Simulated scan of single mutants.
Amino acid sequence: MQIKNIVPLVLLAGLPGCATLPSSGPTGEQIRKSAVAPEDLPPINVLEVRAAADVPQFSKAASPAAILMQTAVTPTDMVGPGDILDISIYEAGVTLFSSNNNSALAQAASPPGVQVQKLPPARIDDQGEIAVPYIGTMHVAGLTTRDVEAMIRKALLRVSQNPQVLVSVDEAITNSIIIGGEVAKPGRLVLRTNRESLSDVIALAGGYRGNSKDLMVRIMRGTSSADIRVNDIIEDPTLDVPIRPGDRLMLVDDPRTYSILGASGRVEQVSFRRSTVSLAEAVANAGGTNPNLGDPAAIFLFRYVKDAEGKETPVVYHLNMMQTGSYFLAQKFTMQDKDVLYFGNAAANQPSKLVQLISQLFSPVLSVTSAVSVIQNSN
């Protein structure tokens, strides 16, 4: 069989492949049609972004202060279950407590003729009580150290001459928080002023580890919890909420990302470089539309949007980057976590793909034809 007879056979073999030319995704028109009647889903709303009013407003999360259970500012010397108290009793004249075991420091600090007795460390039990000699059990949870001093002194007045009492917290549990995750020193942290904010306690825990833009801190208070981005605190000081005793904080590595698909310069998942990223920046990060495959008039953003009832519904935003105004709108369009940025294929590129495919089919034949011609000429 001659070479010229092989060519038609190659063409016939290549025709079935032309019906399924390689593509990086649907065209803009195909997206609109499939959104009207998607398989096994209700119709998807495709919104045209042509004016400033069409740009969705950046939806901030609810204020952490509004989410977290509100608790009053408590005194720094308030005691509760788990705290260990140091109790010292000063007596003059006939003493109730023996002073044989008094420390040299206590003796030096007391006036002449005054006997000082430091009682063994008293741990407040789960019921909020402590035991004091000659008094018995006392409920002290929720009181300050001054309140505890007054209670002990009043109880001792019946058996001692003008006793004076000093109470201090040796080990604080009530006035502390637990912080863990991506911090240098995770563990229990005692609040010294009860005025510490979120950034304060992170600093007191040795600072965060990793990149601040990728860190999220979850504050758990009672039955409520709130999530705050560490990087957002810098741009919005209102997020630097006060921390209360009993709070539990966890810093986790949870970067915000958006995905780039379709006929762009590259296909990848991109992390947010800052707290907010505009659509124009996202398009630039993607390398723009691929000039050989994509259609600048078919830029789509896929996002789940919560309705008035809090239910997530899929929405597609369309921008025509062939129009000058779209570049200004893209600067006001804020990307959100887990957005999908899609660059539509250009329908006009299909004929060029067909030509490329036929060219690829003919290349081996032409090479063989050239080789046979060289052989025949040499003979």
Rank of each mutant, 00 (worst) to 15 (best):
D77W: 11
A108R: 14
P81T: 07
K118G: 11
P120W: 03
N100G: 14
S98Y: 01
Y90G: 02
Q117M: 09
G93H: 03
V132T: 01
Q107A: 11
I124L: 09
I89Q: 01
T76E: 10
G113F: 05
I84H: 06
Q107F: 03
S110C: 15
M138D: 07
Y134I: 02
G80C: 04
T137M: 11
D83P: 06
G113D: 08
V94W: 01
M78W: 11
D126I: 12
P75L: 13
A104K: 07
P133I: 03
T74G: 07
S88W: 01
N102Y: 02
G82C: 13
R123T: 11
M69W: 14
P111F: 13
A66I: 05
I130N: 02
L68E: 06
G80L: 04
Y134P: 01
A65Y: 08
G128N: 04
V132R: 00
P75Q: 11
Q115N: 09
M69V: 13
S99F: 03
A92T: 15
A108V: 10
V94E: 06
V114L: 12
G136Y: 06
P112T: 10
Q70E: 14
A122T: 06
E129S: 11
V79P: 08
L105C: 04
A65K: 08
G128H: 03
I87K: 01
G80R: 02
S88D: 05
L68I: 11
A106I: 05
D86R: 09
N100R: 13
S103V: 03
S110V: 15
S99E: 13
I124C: 04
S99W: 01
F97Q: 00
G136H: 06
T74H: 12
A92M: 14
L85M: 10
T71D: 14
A66V: 08
S98C: 04
P111Q: 11
T137D: 12
P111I: 11
D126Q: 13
A122N: 06
T74N: 14
P81E: 08
V132L: 01
E91W: 00
S98E: 12
I135H: 01
D83L: 08
N102Q: 09
E91T: 00
A109P: 06
A104R: 07
E129Q: 12
Q127A: 15
G128A: 05
S88G: 07
V114M: 13
G136V: 08
A66R: 09
S88A: 12
I84M: 12
S88V: 09
N102T: 08
Y90W: 13
K118I: 06
L119G: 02
M69K: 13
I130M: 05
Q127P: 01
V94T: 13
G93R: 02
N100L: 15
T137S: 13
P81C: 09
A122L: 10
P121H: 08
A72W: 05
V116K: 02
P120K: 08
P111D: 15
Q107H: 04
I130W: 02
G93P: 04
T95K: 10
Y90E: 14
N102P: 03
A108K: 11
I124A: 04
L85W: 02
T74F: 09
F97T: 00
L105S: 10
